[in-house]
Amino acid sequence: MRENVLVSIVSDQTLPNILIIKELEQINFKLFIFISTEEMERRGKTDTIVSTSKIDSRRVKVVKVDQDNYLEILNKLNSIEEIKDKNIFYYLNITCGTKPMSITLLDFYRDYENKIVIYIPVGKNYYIDFYSGKKIDISYRVTVEEYLSSYNIKIENKKKIPQHIDCLNDRKEMTYKLWDFALNNIDKVNEIIKNLRDTYKNNRNKISRDEIKDIAGELLNLINLDLESESHDRVKNWYNYFTGGWFEELVYLRTRDILGVKENDHIVIGIQIVKGGVKNELDVVVCLENRLYYIECKTGLGEKQNDVFKETFEKLARMKDQKQFGLSMRNYLLTLDKKVLYDVNGDLQKEERESTYGIKFYGLKEIEEAGLDGIIKEIFGIKGD
């Protein structure tokens, strides 16, 4: 029986290595060899690949090299017995790393007949057989959790997400009723949201059942909700729902149904993530075709640009850091705002904002013109009805 070894080059972009490992999972690799550097190992890149791919660490060997020194890399490779057995078939993944690392690996295996050299073009779901030029489709699709894990990002509230999904599915008809009402009464809805938030803040982050009924009575009647039968914890949940949670759930529901993706695998809502001690809460996250999409949902952005607006855009801009979230992440803002995003003529400040923050955004006018479904289809490149 033929023995197989996978040799991969490690860099900041861990996802290409994980994709190849998962795609070739049916091959019983005797050994996984990672050509890395001191810096990449210090930052735990190989460990991240191994843990996300769920491969046996006992079958892993790391070779640390100077990423820009051809001769040093060549000497290191020559010193490793496991990578120069000509009876073994070698899979060489040269997608990542520096050019000297890739060139040296190619030169080292030049005279080996038992090999295939693999390269994944940026953003593509196929790999290329380097010497023949043949394109081979990658059928594996990473989940949201796998994508985030590939960049060493942990989901802190993972166990609570299924409960949230059950809850939003149970009240989806309420959410659609609120959406229909908001489209024709956005000023009234935003005023209710503002009053709820002000009351909560003035009461030191507390709000009573009666206060919600007094402020949002019209919305309660609209969805036929009786707060008297709700527990204290559920009252807080409904406060979060009325102050913007309903819009997040709406975007989640429409995105899920339009894309037809599996809940809690390729689309999640309200996840709390942490990386390097820095925490963030993400509204709607989708992993489609091995690309991560993040949609921030806001009912409003505050009256002034230094309110929620600046905070929101800076958060999204930070998440465009390729080293933090990968080359394949796309960020979007969907908001029911009709003031802050627009200039004095009522036109969307699109070019200025997108060039400054590197994200795409849609305000109320765009949603009214294209429809929410139309905006979602545009985000994911879906054409037609």
Rank of each mutant, 00 (worst) to 15 (best):
I9Y: 02
Q13G: 13
Q13M: 15
P16E: 10
L24I: 04
I27R: 00
F29N: 07
F32H: 11
F32A: 01
I33P: 13
F34W: 01
I35D: 08
R43E: 00
T46A: 02
D47V: 09
T52D: 12
V60S: 02
V63K: 10
V65K: 07
Y70F: 14
Y70V: 07
L77C: 00
N78W: 13
S79W: 15
I80Y: 04
E81Y: 01
F89I: 01
Y90F: 04
N93S: 03
I94N: 06
P100S: 11
D107G: 14
R110Q: 12
E113M: 12
I116V: 14
Y119S: 08
I120E: 05
V122M: 13
G123P: 13
D129L: 14
S132H: 07
D137I: 05
I138M: 12
V142R: 04
T143A: 09
E146I: 00
E146T: 13
L148G: 04
S149H: 14
K154V: 02
K154R: 14
N157T: 02
K159Y: 11
K159C: 06
K160C: 11
I161M: 09
H164D: 01
I165M: 03
C167N: 09
W179K: 09
A182T: 08
I186D: 02
R197K: 15
T199Q: 04
Y200V: 05
N202Y: 15
N203W: 13
N203D: 12
E211V: 01
I212A: 05
I223T: 07
D226V: 07
S229K: 12
V235W: 06
Y239L: 12
F242M: 05
G244T: 00
L250R: 05
V251F: 14
R254G: 03
T255E: 00
D265H: 05
I269G: 06
K275P: 05
K275W: 01
N280H: 10
D283E: 00
V285P: 02
V285F: 02
L288T: 07
E289D: 01
G300M: 10
N306T: 07
D307M: 15
D307V: 12
Q322F: 15
Q324H: 11
F325A: 03
F325P: 11
G326F: 11
N331I: 02
D337E: 10
D337M: 11
K338E: 15
Y342P: 15
D347W: 15
L348C: 15
L348N: 14
K350G: 09
E352M: 09
R353N: 03
S355Q: 03
T356Q: 08
K360N: 09
G363K: 13
G363V: 08
K365L: 11
I367V: 15
E369Q: 03
G371L: 05
I376L: 13
K377T: 01
I379C: 06
F380M: 00
G381Q: 07
I382H: 01
K383I: 04
G384S: 08
